[in-house]
Simulated scan of single mutants.
Amino acid sequence: MAKLLLNLRYVPDDEAADVCAFLDEAGIPWYQTRPSPFGISSGGIWLRDNDDLPRAKALMAAYQARRQDRARAAQAQAERDGTAETFADIVRADPKRVVLIVIAIVFLIGLMAVPGYMLSR
């Protein structure tokens, strides 16, 4: 019976391609399902044989550790270069979104405070 190795929700294409490549290198049979047209399922990378799951998970853990190291190194380099995205960059790029998020946060905090205020009276 097939086992899901990787749910493809929010997975970039390059990561999915890397996973497929290291599964092929290791000789682990797999197949990929595509997302449904209505967004009910997001697709996935499945292993054909249950016995391959422990080895595939070990390979996946090693891959994710390497990817994490590369991402952290790239972020550190961007911070050293001064090209890393800051909050000010986000506000400049999309001020309406930031204002709406702040308003939503204030509204929700106020909504949570109402019961305490009502009980204290």
Rank of each mutant, 00 (worst) to 15 (best):
G110L: 06
L53C: 00
R80A: 12
A88W: 02
A16K: 06
A104Y: 05
N7F: 00
A71P: 01
A104Q: 06
D18R: 15
D24R: 13
M118N: 07
F107C: 14
A104R: 04
D14P: 00
A78E: 08
P12W: 00
A58R: 10
A74F: 01
A71W: 09
R48V: 14
D81S: 10
E15V: 14
D81T: 02
P29T: 04
N50K: 06
Y10P: 01
A65V: 05
P95N: 06
A93S: 15
I105N: 08
R70D: 07
F22R: 08
I40D: 01
L108R: 00
P115G: 04
A56D: 07
L5G: 08
A16Y: 03
G43T: 01
N50P: 05
V98P: 10
D14K: 01
D52R: 11
K3W: 02
D14V: 06
I109S: 13
A88N: 10
I101R: 15
V11K: 11
L23K: 07
P35R: 13
P95S: 11
V106H: 05
Q75L: 15
S42N: 13
N50R: 09
R55G: 00
L100R: 15
R80S: 11
R70L: 11
S36H: 10
L59K: 03
I28C: 03
L4I: 05
C20L: 08
S41T: 11
L6I: 12
I40N: 07
I101G: 11
R48K: 14
K96A: 10
V11G: 04
E15R: 13
A56N: 11
A88I: 03
M118G: 00
Q75E: 14
L108A: 02
T83H: 11
F22N: 02
I45T: 09
A58L: 08
I109W: 15
R92Y: 03
A113D: 09
A61C: 04
T86Y: 04
G39D: 06
M112I: 07
Q32D: 01
A56R: 05
